[in-house]
Simulated scan of single mutants.
Amino acid sequence: MTQLQTVHTKDAPKAVGAYSQAVKHQGMLYTSGQIGLDPTSGHMVADDVVNQTKQVVANLTAVIEAAGGQLNQIVKVTIFLENMDDFPKVNQIYADWLGEHRPARSTVAVAALPLAAKVEMDCVVAIG
């Protein structure tokens, strides 16, 4: 059986439950969902979706890089939004984050997110 490798970086919020920031398995990285928590303070960066989204992508970038990956290796992203009216703002930050890279993506409206977050994202990255 192939061993799973957990990923941890101090540059992203530490796991607040029974999970890892990410897991590597057979050349693939699976990140846990990231919300707009500041990795130093452990608190939400702001109440607005724009600043939360900027922190989310910073957190995901830190986890991906800690695992030895790069943004252009992202295969799939899932975005969870508390309010679909925020989609245009989140989509613009997302597009700026990834530049010309266009992985597969799903966006899902949810009733609520942890710590009253307005946005959460996770991704799958081919790093092998």
Rank of each mutant, 00 (worst) to 15 (best):
V77Q: 07
T78R: 03
P103L: 05
M44F: 11
P39Y: 14
A66S: 14
V63D: 02
N83C: 03
T53N: 11
K118E: 09
L98C: 11
P39D: 14
A58K: 13
I35D: 06
K118I: 03
P114E: 09
A111L: 05
I79D: 07
G33V: 07
E65T: 14
P114R: 00
D122Q: 06
A117D: 00
K76C: 09
N83L: 06
G69H: 08
D48Y: 15
A117S: 08
R105T: 13
A58D: 13
I93D: 04
Y94W: 09
N91H: 13
I35P: 00
T53H: 04
V124D: 07
F87S: 00
A104E: 05
P88L: 13
K118N: 06
D85C: 05
P39T: 15
D122R: 06
S106H: 05
G99I: 09
A117Y: 04
L81Q: 03
V119D: 01
V90M: 12
T107F: 04
F87W: 14
G69C: 07
T40W: 13
V56S: 04
S106D: 00
A66E: 03
L98W: 08
L98M: 08
V90D: 07
V119N: 10
A66L: 05
M121L: 13
C123A: 06
L60F: 06
P88R: 15
L113N: 01
V124I: 14
G33K: 10
D85H: 10
C123R: 02
L71G: 02
V45I: 11
N83A: 07
P88E: 05
V45F: 06
A116V: 04
L113Y: 02
I35L: 00
V119W: 05
A46S: 13
S106M: 10
L60C: 00
I93R: 04
L81H: 01
E120S: 15
N51K: 06
D47C: 06
V110T: 15
V63T: 08
T40L: 00
Q73H: 14
H101I: 01
A67E: 08
L98K: 01
A58Y: 07
A46L: 11
A104R: 11
V75P: 01
E120R: 04
D47N: 15
E120Q: 08
Q52A: 10
I74D: 00
A117L: 09
V57Y: 05
R105V: 08
L115F: 15
Q92D: 14
V57E: 00
T61Q: 15
K89A: 09
R102N: 08
K54L: 07
A58I: 11
L37D: 02
N59I: 07
D85R: 01
V75I: 14
F80A: 03
D86Y: 10
T53K: 08
P88Y: 08
Q92P: 01
I79S: 03
V110M: 09
D122F: 09
A112K: 09
T53G: 02
A111T: 15
I93G: 02
A67P: 02
V63R: 06
V57N: 04
W97T: 12
H101P: 02
V57S: 08
V63I: 15
N51Y: 05
N59R: 09
V110P: 12
D122S: 10
